[in-house]
Nucleic acid binder design. Sequence first.
DNA 1: TTGAAAAGTTGAGTCGTTGCACTTTTTTAG
DNA 2: CTAAAAAAGTGCAACGACTCAACTTTTCAA
Lengths: 189, 189
Amino acid sequence: MGRRERKKAATRQALADAALRLFLDRGFDQVSVRDIAEAADVSTTTVFKHFPSKEALLFDLDSDREAALIAAVRDRPEGMSVPRALCEHTLRMHSDGTDDPEMARFVELTESTPGLREYGRRMLMRHEAALAAAIAETTGVPADDPGCAALAHFALETVGFARGRADARRSIEAAFALLEHGWPAAGQR
Amino acid sequence: MGRRERKKAATRQALADAALRLFLDRGFDQVSVRDIAEAADVSTTTVFKHFPSKEALLFDLDSDREAALIAAVRDRPEGMSVPRALCEHTLRMHSDGTDDPEMARFVELTESTPGLREYGRRMLMRHEAALAAAIAETTGVPADDPGCAALAHFALETVGFARGRADARRSIEAAFALLEHGWPAAGQR
DNA sequence: TTGAAAAGTTGAGTCGTTGCACTTTTTTAG
DNA sequence: CTAAAAAAGTGCAACGACTCAACTTTTCAA
């Protein structure tokens, strides 16, 4: 890697670090892009050469998420259903956000700012097609099967559903119970 | 109704009309709020006294939607399941958008602009709580039952899912089939 | 060494949106 | 009925996110 790319990476990292620090300190809306640029000692325009938007400064670590999602489906234990595997994966991701206090503050920031909620949701939904393809593959149906796409969409949407509900874990489980067993018929209630 | 309110209503209508005309003509992003204000012969500030955002200029008619949604659940034929009723209602709403050519252009506009898609989705999702309550009522469970909330959320989310897919009707039906019967067990495939 | 491409930086500008001040209308008090 | 005060409408100027067109610097091959 040449000197140039190293410097570019350093600037990028400095921007992401400064942004995270300022956001956690003052809140997303109380920090302007100018502030971040100044803290990293570059001009505001330069910020947008490295990141497509103000929100993107926070979601710099987006990789691996898709891979973990696909793996949860593909490498699930023998005999476990796809919705069940996705449920457990979602619960696992969710508890990751409440263990580490550093991470907890980050999660709290993203969930309390409407703009960041939307952005996070869109980031997550970009994996819909890949997840649908993985589901189709393990169940042996055509890759564009609408049922697989629907399951993928709803499974990803579940975190958005649980957000803001009183008992998040119970909401996640209820959502996946619906996806796995369907709406209970009139007699079974 | 006094003269003042009449004038206010007239200005509001003029703004909504001018906005719709310009948006259909040039596209949402190619029209600035200043253009709309000028077309209605007011200042840009006045626009935001009547509408909370640029997007709101298009979604002026949002009422009745929630009422129709609730009615579809509450007044469904004897013996019809809740997901089935919601499926038919969703399909009915969807075909409304493709019949009338005027409406078709409107739908095409809202679906082709990312900002408008998000806004429309949020408008729709505001009905989640009311729909969940209606579902809970007809099935005789506590109003805050997470299963009902999940069904409400996913049913509303279905239009967002079908959007942008090749065969929208088939996608809607597949989504509701999943919600009604659940993910088919390994043997049934 | 040189010269052109790639990348970084900048200042000026656009667009959505909001605070502050000003004008007009409606309501209230004398 | 009139004056004052409250309320509502309107516009100018400004802020913050983001883009564009130019300019400067860095890199690297010939």
